[in-house]
């Protein structure tokens, strides 16, 4: 089928080549700037200008989703409410017990002269956007350098680790999520009789993979993994943050290591707010 009107809308061949070159050069410049750890002024401006629109659409989407869920899931919500009440009561008792243990640990640390961990400053930030792309998992939060967020700040949610700040603009920041294929964090099995360590990596699929786990390591399905404070992304994560739960353990094809699949503790696609640790 031949086109009936062959005259193009704008420009000529030179303009086309120029535009394509601009796109390619901008892209390469941007990637190089990010690799050096420098924020790109172009994308910072674009994000700052478009953030109100994206934020408004996110809010509208959440509002509609919440109303729809209220309509559709009312009966299930009542059942869940009962279950959650029971769980809440159980967790309250657990918190009280842990608080008591915490006080006891503090007292022992002081009496033995241990150095106490430094308290982190916290910034609560709304999740404005989630970037759904193949293998790349990014969140954009509505707090930036103006609010004290810095590059490589650790980002957590009540469930555990979310990721770390990758790029900061004055009023927003991009967070590399722990499920991103470029993410890595030192991990440790919480179970006292195990304490197996390894490196958890994002796979880009919503699950994590724990590497460097020896074949004879004591690790099993259901084990909770915490950040070890070692390895991974330059050791920026403090020790003890929940990462996820072991979902599957198999022997690696090499026979020397184990292949451990981990489900993240935080449901990234449902996050509405996160906390940035400074």
């Amino acid at each position: 089928m031949l086109r009936s009107n062959p005259k193009p809308l704008i420009g000529n061949r030179a303009a086309l080549v120029g535009l394509v070159l601009v796109g390619v050069c901008l892209g390469v410049f941007h990637n190089r700037a990010l690799a050096r750890g420098a924020p790109s002024p172009l994308t910072t401006v674009v994000r700052t200008v478009t953030l109100p629109l994206v934020g408004a659409i996110t809010s509208a989407g959440r509002w509609v989703s919440a109303r729809w869920a209220a309509l559709v899931d009312a009966e299930r919500a009542v059942r869940e409410n009962h279950v959650l009440r029971d769980e809440n009561a159980r967790l309250r008792a657990e918190v009280a017990r842990l608080q008591e243990l915490g006080i006891q640990a503090l007292r022992l640390q002081r009496s033995l002269g241990f150095e106490l961990p430094t308290a982190h400053g916290k910034i609560v930030a709304p999740v404005v956007a989630r970037w759904p792309s193949a293998g790349l998992h990014t969140l954009v939060i509505g707090r930036g350098s103006r609010h004290g967020v810095r590059a490589q700040s650790v980002v957590v949610a009540p469930g555990g680790v979310v990721g770390y700040v990758y790029d900061v603009a004055p009023t927003s920041a991009a967070v590399l999520a722990l499920t991103d294929s470029n993410f890595a964090i030192g991990a440790l099995v919480q179970r006292p009789e195990s304490r197996t360590t390894g490196i958890c990596r994002g796979t880009g699929t919503g699950l994590l993979r724990m590497d460097y786990v020896a074949r004879d390591a004591d690790i099993r399905k259901g084990d909770l993994l915490l950040s070890s404070g070692l390895g991974g992304q330059a050791g920026i994560f403090p020790k003890g943050l929940p990462i996820g739960t072991v979902e599957d353990v198999r022997d690696d094809v090499s026979g020397a290591l184990k292949r451990v699949v981990v489900r993240p503790a935080v449901q990234l696609d449902r996050l509405e707010e996160v906390t940035v640790l400074r």
């Binding site: 086309l16 535009l19 394509v20 994206v54 990014t138």
Partner: peptide
Amino acid sequence: AGPCGAAGWGLLVGTFEAAYAADLAGS
């Protein structure tokens, strides 16, 4: 759009997407 217009729209969309993707955004 013609070739130039389309390249311009591609650059616009690419820049918007790059602003919200943390890694390899220039690509």
